[in-house]
């Protein structure tokens, strides 16, 4: 067992916390929620590892270039980029 569960009723459960990782990294969580997650992460090695894996996934995806994924979905991408540029112009 790697986790060291807290005792309070407001303690974040690991099963819920892992579903918040993207929101946590995006920095879109309310301050209170963010604080609870940080407290949990300090104590829970399992969740720290999950967060590290999450960061690795983002880093690995960042190593890919647009060209790497262009053939995955060429047309949708083109259309998407056009919409994207359009949205930016507005």
């Amino acid at each position: 067992m790697n986790g060291e569960p807290g005792t309070g009723g407001t303690e974040e459960r690991c099963v819920d916390l892992v579903e918040q990782l993207t929101a946590y990294l995006d920095g879109t969580l309310p301050v209170e929620e963010r604080r609870r997650i940080e407290q949990h992460l300090e104590r829970c090695e399992g969740c720290r590892t999950a967060l590290a894996q999450w960061r690795t996934v983002v880093r690995l995806a960042g190593r890919l270039t647009t060209a790497d994924v262009a053939d995955v979905d060429p047309l949708l991408r083109d259309r998407l980029m056009a919409t994207f540029l359009e949205a930016r112009r507005r």
Binding site: M1, N2, G3, P5, R13, V15, C44, T49, Q53, T56
Partner: peptide
């Protein structure tokens, strides 16, 4: 004891 906490935590990469 620990409902909702890791039973099999992820392995560090």
């Amino acid at each position: 004891d620990w409902p909702g906490h890791w039973a099999v935590p992820p392995a560090a990469w």
